[in-house]
Design a protein around this nucleic acid. Structure first.
Length: 415
RNA sequence: CGGGGUGUAGUAUAUCGGUAGUACGUCUGCUUUGGGAGCAGAUAGGCCGAGUUCGAUUCUCGGCACCCCGACCA
């Protein structure tokens, strides 16, 4: 798209009170807007990144057999009373209407998905299955912080799996570890993300988190370099060696939790009496797993991990555009014509291009291009036209190359 | 929720119990066009509510918001 048509603008300065790198850069570059602490609007550029992340997750969940649905955010009080969490979950947003009816704003969806599943599960033949959604979650954080990393309203992918017994759940759970690793690999966090043993599991003594190492992290983990797994500090007292290989030379790191998987077992199927008939016609309890990924957290974590002094740096897979076409303003109309021709060519090849067609000085455009962080910057100017080439610069490496039209189109379509 | 800090324009700040000023930014025009350029003009502010006072941005009290540390959590 033409940058002149973007209704948002980049800013030279970040808001004075922002400390978090992700908030500073995302606000400056016009990817998000803060409405209040922990509550953000995704602007056109930011939403493109978020949707790219969402699509990667969707593809992987579908491959894992997940069926996408969309559950509501407004949850009747009664369902939350059934599990006891109306009273015990202290970050639950409770709202009441004019008639006095009370609802919760969903912080998670076990209370909704279990009664839903109950309608369709009667026999062992109906199991197993998994269903997921992308949904806004509400949690009354007393202290929202770290930019978009810890919000009061945030988008999460939550999947729930239903099984006839623990063995089937365990097998699915193991498979999901691999699915999650693949998701983090694809969004560009693979190298720094560790499967992490944490508290809260029911059939094993662990649940599993996926923790990305970054100084912006809120958690402390102990990494075993030999097996590329980690242990959350919360359980390090009980578990001071690598749960995988038993080694004790673990490396301390701060990290941000980007995803987690839980074996819920019958924690939620019991209160809702979610059962099925086995081959003998006897009632058996359905067991469940749940699997969450925070989309905004991934986005913010990528900024924390890859962003540099000049701004954002997006991995190709989630970048808002593949190419930033920067036209250096000129009185010579052939520059505009050259840029437009290239824009049309690339667009026809299916390349997503942001074309900076604004009247502005070169330095300003370059600075903004770096700030926005699109992986490949292509310059069209009097110079490049005279040389008969285009200048292509890799945002992440800073590498510059002069290429002709065919080479450039090749670069853009093969990466 | 405990502790700390801060609230004057988008940002950084100045002044003062008596018409709130400067710089940067932003916007418009002209010039300029390879790393945030120049000139001219314009824009925009005392967090909210009580109280004291002839008069409060300033003093008092109470709220609220934002940021940071901790606790909690994904």
């Amino acid at each position: 798209m033409k940058q002149s048509q973007l209704f948002t603008k980049a800013r030279k300065e970040a808001p004075a009170d922002e400390v978090a790198k992700n908030a500073k850069l995302l606000i400056r570059a016009g990817f998000v807007d803060k409405l209040q602490a922990g509550v953000y609007t995704y602007l056109p550029l930011g939403l493109r990144v978020l949707k790219n992340i969402e699509n990667i997750i969707r593809e992987e969940m579908n491959k894992a057999g997940g069926q996408e649905i969309l559950m509501p955010s407004l949850h009747p009080k009664e369902l939350w009373q059934t599990t006891g969490r109306w009273d015990t979950m202290d970050d639950l947003y409770k709202v009441s209407d004019a008639s006095g009816r009370e609802n919760a704003l969903g912080p998670t969806h076990e209370e909704i998905v279990v009664p839903l599943a109950k309608q369709f599960i009667s026999s062992y033949r109906d199991l197993p299955f998994a269903t997921y959604q992308f949904q806004n979650k509400f949690r009354m954080e007393l202290r929202a912080k770290s930019g978009i990393l810890r919000g009061r309203e945030f988008i999460m992918k939550d999947m729930y799996s239903f099984h006839r017994d623990e063995a089937d759940l365990a097998a699915y759970y193991e498979m999901m570890k691999g699915v999650y690793a693949r998701v983090f690999e694809r969004v560009g966090l693979g190298e720094r993300t560790y499967l992490t043993f944490a508290s809260g599991g029911s059939f094993s003594k662990y649940s599993h988190e996926f923790q990305t190492v970054t100084p912006a992290g809120e958690d402390t983990i102990y990494v075993c370099d030999a097996c590329r797994v980690a242990v959350n500090k919360e359980i390090i007292a009980d578990q001071d060696t690598c749960p995988s290989c038993g080694k004790s030379d673990l490396r301390e790191e701060t990290a941000i939790e980007v995803g987690n998987i839980f074996d819920l077992k019958s924690r939620f199927s019991n209160p809702f009496k979610l059962t099925y008939k086995d081959e003998e016609g006897k009632d058996q309890t359905v067991v469940m797993g749940c699997y969450g990924i925070g989309l905004g957290r991934i986005l913010g974590t990528v900024v924390e991990v890859l962003g540099d002094d000049n701004g954002l740096v997006w991995p190709q897979a989630i970048a808002p555009f593949a190419v930033h076409l920067v036209e250096i303003s000129s009185a010579d109309a052939s520059v505009r014509d050259g840029a437009e021709k290239l824009y049309n060519d690339l667009t026809q090849e299916g390349v997503q291009v942001l074309w900076d067609d604004r009247e502005a000085r070169a330095g300003e455009k370059f600075a903004e291009s770096d700030l926005i962080g699109i992986p490949l910057r292509v310059v069209v100017s009097e110079k490049t036209l005279a040389a008969g080439t285009f200048e292509a610069k890799n945002r992440a490496t800073g590498e510059v190359s002069m290429v002709d039209r065919a080479e450039l189109i090749n670069m853009c379509t093969t990466q």
